[in-house]
């Protein structure tokens, strides 16, 4: 337990020193702020474009459009930023060899994995919360009737998907050598999930639907109950990834 506390502290210091703890919330705050603004200004942007007689009529934007922009940004750019920032958290440290001194002094390898997961998950949670809070605030400011249903559940789905990705990054970092191996493997993992979504039978269970159906949840076209298989599977997969990465990392030669 003592080792865990110490290593969490070390991870947190690393996040501060590498500016992860600053970058991630800042970028996600901007996503949250720009999305309602982009939705609000969309008609102006189109009317400002002079396209030789072609007129594009855009319906008056609503709060739903603001959240559509938000989830488009978060599920695309947001996930990319998350991957870039955290992809090296284990593989980078193995490559640099900075883990060897602490591990020889008796810190258990499981603790390393768990502490890294704790800190990265905490950062992801805070960033997502900042993003959604700013999106909610600015949407209420710009639009009347800013209330939408199941917003929290929709955000929770995205959060859970991010939690799975972080667990997988640790597994990939334990499996592959080199700084970029983990990033490529995690990208391949997302690619496989996206491909699996082509089969209607798999869609219900696919973790990636947690980051794809956010708008349908808010719009009410997908019931909360219909997401439960994917939620359960993602939860199980995240735990499995963590357990596997601990098992693999125990045998990794540093």
């Amino acid at each position: 337990m003592k080792g865990y506390h110490a290593f969490v502290k070390k991870e947190w210091m690393e996040s501060l020193r590498t500016y992860r703890a600053l970058l991630l919330p800042a970028v996600f705050f901007l996503f949250g702020m720009m999305s309602p603004l982009a939705a609000k200004l969309m008609p102006d942007i189109f009317s400002g474009m002079n396209m030789e007689g072609v007129t594009i009529t855009v319906p008056t934007p609503t709060a739903i459009d603001a959240y559509a922009q938000l989830f488009k940004n978060l599920t695309q750019m947001g996930i990319v930023v998350l991957l870039l920032v955290f992809s090296g958290m284990l593989s980078g440290e193995i490559a640099k060899g900075t883990l060897i001194p602490i591990l020889t002094k008796g810190l258990s390898r499981n603790t390393v994995i768990l502490a890294k997961y704790t800190v990265s998950l905490a950062l992801w949670t805070v960033s997502l919360a900042v993003s959604c809070a700013s999106a909610y605030g600015y949407t209420s400011y710009l639009f009347r009737n800013a209330q939408v249903e199941h917003l929290l559940f929709s955000v929770f789905c995205l959060w859970l998907f991010g939690a799975l990705l972080l667990a997988f990054i640790l597994l990939a970092g334990a499996l592959v050598r080199g700084g970029f191996g983990g990033l490529i493997l995690t990208a391949a993992f997302i690619g496989i999930l996206l491909l699996a979504n082509l089969f209607p039978a798999a869609e219900k269970w696919n973790p990636v639907s947690l980051a794809a159906k956010n708008m349908q949840i808010i719009a009410g076209t997908v019931a909360v109950g219909a997401m439960m298989p994917a939620v359960c599977l993602t939860l199980a997969a995240a735990v499995l990834c963590l357990v596997l990465s601990m098992a693999v990392f125990r045998k990794t030669i540093l």
Binding site: F29, L30, M33, L37, Y138
Partner: peptide, 8 residues
């Protein structure tokens, strides 16, 4: 747009 410009 001041509420946007200042935080930005």
């Amino acid at each position: 747009y001041l509420p946007f410009l200042i935080p930005l």
